[in-house]
Write a protein that binds this DNA or RNA. Structure first.
Ligand SMILES: [Mn+2]
Ligand SMILES: [Mn+2]
Ligand SMILES: [Mn+2]
Ligand SMILES: [Mn+2]
Lengths: 144, 144
DNA sequence: CACATGGAATAGCCATGGCTAAATTCAAGC
DNA sequence: GCTTGAATTTAGCCATGGCTATTCCATGTG
């Protein structure tokens, strides 16, 4: 049945997209958080990142090595973490998207507390098209 | 600074919730898919699950062992996979939530194709409260 | 009723993302 | 300038979720 096979392929595509988004979740959260820490406190230290994420510090150390290897950050040993141009770009995009998703949830009637919790996961699965829809919704809500 | 520490704890909570949702994503997708296959074709075979998910068959085999161990399914060797009562319950809940999320995205103006793709990931991060908001939105949209 | 074949099981590899425990090292304060 | 404590690094463990290659075996067809 060619129909069935084609159908499988179509369905599989959404799972593939979700898996690929899942792989990027952590990278986006780390970079956004590092940007926040730098902007708020002038530096981003492993202990602070760990405390904000709710994980152990060596977990952060391992992740930072990966982010370095992939060119998103630079590290000065025993000093803080710094964003490369690419890292800063990803952080900004993630931060913007995160804010829109959280504001959208609030606008549609979710309590601020729940919006905060849910947005942390939802943000990573919102495509450009959906994000635009959310933005337009917010604009219209602001008018009313 | 106690203020800062408390603040960290609050922020960490959303990351914890997102991590915990991430751990359940696969379980929910598998059970929902197995229920679909059983309802549509009368049985759920590893090859079919693999084709629908877009992964290799041994990947499915390994995951099914885990689902068995955790009491969500039973397996008859070389026959299909069957849902336990608990497995069926999780599947139904996931299916319902998935449908609401996808319908909500469409209702708010996202194209059906993008809604299908994004819903596959978003669904797992939508809390009960947010789901209810989405449902109410759909009801109101239906009235208009 | 034999047996071919397609699905299932197994083995073994890798990357990711958690953890604890221990060793290092930097820097602040005495 | 020494000391010491906190932060970082390192080492090593585990579970999850992918993969390929291979073996196995139940069933349905001839
Ligand atoms: Mn975020
Ligand atoms: Mn997030
Ligand atoms: Mn689903
Ligand atoms: Mn899903």
């Amino acid at each position: 049945m060619n129909e069935t096979e084609a159908d499988d392929e179509v369905r599989a595509e959404s799972f593939r997209q979700a898996r690929s988004a899942r792989r990027l979740e952590l990278v986006e959260d780390y970079l956004e958080l590092i940007a926040d820490l730098i902007d708020d406190h002038g530096e981003a230290r492993q202990v602070d990142i760990a405390a904000r994420l709710g994980v152990a510090q060596p977990t952060v150390a391992k992740m930072l090595r990966r982010l370095s290897k992939d060119g998103f950050i630079t590290q000065r040993p025993y000093r803080g973490v710094f964003l490369t141009e690419e890292g800063r770009a990803v952080a900004e995009r993630s931060r913007t998207r995160h804010r829109i998703v959280e504001a959208f949830l609030c606008a549609v009637g979710v309590s601020p507390e729940t919006a905060r919790l849910d947005a942390e996961g939802i943000e990573h699965h919102v495509s450009a098209e959906t994000l635009e829809v959310f933005e337009r919704f917010l604009e219209r809500a602001a008018d009313a």
